[in-house]
Design a protein around this nucleic acid. Sequence first.
DNA 1: GCAAAAGTGTTTAATATACACCCATGA
DNA 2: TCATGGGTGTATATTAAACACTTTTGC
Lengths: 250, 250
Amino acid sequence: MTLESVINAQPALQAATSYPRGANVAERSAAPPSLAISTVIFALRPIEGTDRLALWLPLVRRIREPFKDQWALPGGPLSHQESLQDAAGRNLQETTGLKPRFLEQLYAFGGLQRSAQKNTQRVVSIVYWALVQPPEAALATESDNVRWVRADCLEELAFDHNEIVEYALWRLRNKLEYGSLAYHFLGERFTLAQVREVYEAVLNRQLDPANFRRQLKATVDIEETDEYLQGGKHRPPRLYRYTGNTETFN
Amino acid sequence: MTLESVINAQPALQAATSYPRGANVAERSAAPPSLAISTVIFALRPIEGTDRLALWLPLVRRIREPFKDQWALPGGPLSHQESLQDAAGRNLQETTGLKPRFLEQLYAFGGLQRSAQKNTQRVVSIVYWALVQPPEAALATESDNVRWVRADCLEELAFDHNEIVEYALWRLRNKLEYGSLAYHFLGERFTLAQVREVYEAVLNRQLDPANFRRQLKATVDIEETDEYLQGGKHRPPRLYRYTGNTETFN
DNA sequence: GCAAAAGTGTTTAATATACACCCATGA
DNA sequence: TCATGGGTGTATATTAAACACTTTTGC
């Protein structure tokens, strides 16, 4: 399943099903809210023309009302047979093609003004967020209806998806410094400079290489290997491995 | 509405509605999950017999299956007319009788093993957590079916409510030091020693009064008043006011 | 050798901790 | 005046930041 193919699943969850015209008000308001799962997928990619990294996320174009032709977060329906976490994971797999190394619940959005349509069924969205590595991200190819965009210069998205991305960014920046988050953007082995690049891209500011290296090594959860990254222009840097646990809640 | 009276609302949300026997499997699995809202309500109360504070929360006794006669978090149905935040706030108001100064979404729980019953409708619970002040907490009177218990020595609760409380405690302890959380346990004016007592109760360890005072005053969000708390046994301490914003997300 | 990133050392400032000490009040 | 918590001062340890300097590679 490709990223594009999930677009067809979109309207089923975030667009709204109208009630039959004959339904009276009491019946309508008694109807249960429907449940949807969306995911904010962050990846680090170089800014075009430069070698500096920035945060990107994939969007899909809506092909039905409401918000037809606008861009939205990838999402899917909540199947009766899977947990919330599994539903989000499956959705991410269908979207990027790979199992995420980091997938965590972000927030449940259930405001009444989420859909611009009137007389629609209420939709509660449980939003997850994921971090993927560059090789994984490369599998989610672009097309007319799938696009990677920079997270910090978004156009207007469908529904309340702009706010959702803002919140995800806020969470990412807050959680970064005090946990294992950065390593989810990287492979199993990495140089300390690569970790610094992750921090610099996410926090959007320069960090002192010398001090950053010392702080990282003070973290006991990092372990040096005997290998060095070859092929660079300068002195080959040592490769490290993350040894802390990467478990998330639920 | 009293705390006790909301018990009757409980089964409607966390117990499960069986499907008619004639329904086939396809129809059954297509049925949408139902949505419930629960709230973990924390208050600081003295440990019996001492003057040290500890975290307490109110529980209600279930009067129907599943988990009949076991204790559970107060909860209520999600009305079609209100936002998630409003639904949680109304539920808290019905429970403790007062508008909370702090109410925030905790997590959406939607595991499939949440109910011990088979052949039941799936229930997704969006759980909020609240902090209330002692005078507010006093309004939630105890009865046969309503009890305040200490948060750190819970018996076995209904559903997965033990895990939910554990998670809420974890969040509380993490968020305490870096925000305005502590002041939600206190009134508009307070002494610095009272703030320290809140920290000591939540973090469950002693803090140096001198250093704590200095760190607090380094926070620009605190302002001294001209008033002093009279009636104590010793030197009357100065009263302070919190000037930071107490807004929460959503 | 030169440029550039890897990696180390050192100096300084900011912050946390420990604890001695004075202050103001009720009893 | 004594006990006690309120409140201040200070000396020390720990940590963060700034930046000079050495090392190792490709070209």
